[in-house]
């Protein structure tokens, strides 16, 4: 299985390179794998726009995601536990949350720029919106999935509400919370790139870099940037999976 898994991408890349060499595909629209590698090199050595090097684009993007994501975690997990715990609160807040949830984070961009300007705050806000709901919903369902009998049993044993909260609810919902966090960071990362399309004050960011490469007509660098975004998203996911495995060994 392992071999076939790698075989297909390799075969496709070879076909792609051959098609480019034979000029079946116009290299402007579809740069060859080799050109993309050179584009990647240019991103590191020359930068896009020239002088703005790749490593800083990555750092700025990660920085924006970090703030949006951390804010989402800080707000969504406690709120999710509360809403999972209290039926009354959940019924009260559900209509508002259900109304805001389907609004795509990107639809918030114009208003976010108006509220927070074009700096880190508006980008972090967009990422926050992308990450918040998956974490919230997974936390709620994590709490709800805890078997009621466990809580009843704890009560009969005279456990305090605090104990029930910290010894049953939180540990019990952790697997679901972690799933929410993984989905959240994925969506946050996707949203970030689009948020950076609209303009960023610092002049750095992977989305911004791709748009600049478009302005200067370097499709090789656009594709190199796209692959990098995919790769970083993939690595973040692997990282969170490792954390998940550590934290929920008992499961």
């Amino acid at each position: 299985m392992k071999l076939t898994q790698f075989l297909l991408p390799i075969v496709l890349i070879i076909c792609w390179q051959t098609a480019s060499l034979l000029q079946i595909v116009p290299t402007y629209k579809f740069p060859s794998p080799l050109q993309i590698i050179y584009g990647f090199k240019d991103l590191i050595v020359i930068g896009m726009p020239p002088g703005h090097h790749l490593q800083y684009h990555i750092l700025y993007s990660l920085y924006r995601v970090f703030w949006g994501y951390i804010t989402a975690i800080i707000l969504a997990i406690p709120l999710g536990i509360l809403l999972g715990w209290s039926n009354r609160l959940r019924l009260l807040l559900q209509p508002i949350l259900e109304l805001i949830r389907p609004i795509p984070p990107l639809a918030w961009i114009p208003i976010a720029i108006l509220w927070f300007g074009i700096g880190i705050k508006s980008a972090a806000f967009i990422i926050f919106l992308g990450a918040f709901f998956p974490i919230l919903l997974n936390t709620i369902s994590g709490v709800l999935s805890i078997e009621h009998i466990l809580i009843e049993a704890a009560r009969t044993l005279h456990a305090s509400t605090k104990d029930i909260f910290f010894k049953i609810l939180i540990p019990g919902s952790i697997p679901s919370i972690l799933t929410g966090m993984r989905i959240g960071v994925g969506i946050g990362w996707m949203t970030l790139v689009a948020a950076e399309f609209t303009g960023v004050k610092q002049g750095y960011g992977l989305g911004y870099m791709i748009m600049t490469a478009r302005d200067i007509h370097r499709p090789d660098e656009i594709l190199a940037g796209m692959f990098l975004i995919g790769l970083i998203g993939f690595l973040i996911d692997i990282g969170l999976r490792l954390v998940e495995r550590k934290l929920v060994q008992w499961k």
Partner: peptide, 20 residues
Amino acid sequence: LNIIVLKPPEMITALDHNQI
């Protein structure tokens, strides 16, 4: 220089709000 990209219709608002 910190040169950033904004679409012209957004520039006046950004200037007005001291973002640029």
